[in-house]
Simulated assay, not measured.
Amino acid sequence: MSVTDIGLMVIIALALLFAIYDEFIVDYFLKGKTRLKIGLHRLNRVDALIFIGLVCILIYQNITSNGTVFTTTLLLVLVLMACYLAYIRRPKIIFKADGFFYANFFIKYDRIKNMNLSEDGFLVIGLEKRRLLIKVKQLDDLETIYNFFLTNN
C-alpha cells in the first residue's frame, strides 16, 4: 500500500464521516430536537464538476500506466463521494431550540442582531461581526422561517 492509497483512504473516510455527521448527527443528536429544517440553494456545482473531472483524469492515467487496481478503486470511490456531497446531498439550515445550524456551524439566537430580506430572495442575518446570506430553495420557506422566529423567540 502506497502513501497515495493511504491519503485517498483518509480523504474518503473524512468525506464519509462528514456525510454521516451532516445527515444524521446534526439532525438527530446535537443541541436537542430539530424544530424546523429548510432546504437551501446549492452552490459550487461547477467546482465539484471540475474536481470530478480531474479525478477521472487520474483514473484514466492510473489505468493506462498499469497502476494498481486498489488505487483505481479508491479513486472511483472518491468520485462517488464527490458526486454524493455535491449533487445528491441537500444543504439545509436546521433550527433547534437554542440556535440553528448553518454551514455546519451552530449559531445561537442571541447572537442575531438584525434580520433583513434582500430583493434577490436572500435572508440576511446580521451577527456581531458578520452577516449570513441565506438563499433558500423556495421563496415560501422565507415566510416559514419568519413565522418560526415570531412564534419561538
Rank of each mutant, 00 (worst) to 15 (best):
S2Y: 01
I6R: 02
I6Y: 09
L8C: 06
L8R: 00
V10Y: 01
V10G: 01
I12L: 14
L14M: 11
A19H: 00
E23M: 05
V26I: 15
Y28I: 05
K31G: 00
G32C: 00
T34S: 02
L36Q: 00
L40D: 02
L43A: 10
D47M: 07
A48Q: 02
A48N: 03
F51I: 02
L54F: 08
C56H: 03
I59N: 04
I59Q: 05
I59L: 11
N66S: 15
G67H: 08
G67F: 10
G67I: 07
T73C: 05
L75Y: 11
L76C: 15
V77I: 15
L78P: 04
L78D: 13
V79H: 07
M81G: 06
A82P: 02
A82G: 09
C83K: 10
L85C: 08
R89E: 09
P91V: 06
K92R: 13
I93F: 02
A97I: 04
D98A: 15
D98F: 10
F100G: 08
F101N: 12
F101C: 11
Y102T: 03
N104C: 04
I107A: 01
Y109E: 01
D110I: 04
D110V: 03
I112H: 04
N114A: 12
L117W: 03
E119I: 13
E119L: 10
D120C: 05
D120L: 10
G121V: 06
F122Y: 14
G126T: 14
E128R: 12
E128G: 09
R130L: 12
R131V: 01
R131H: 06
L133F: 15
L133E: 12
K135H: 13
Q138T: 14
D140Q: 12
D141C: 10
D141I: 09
L142C: 10
T144E: 14
Y146C: 12
F149L: 11
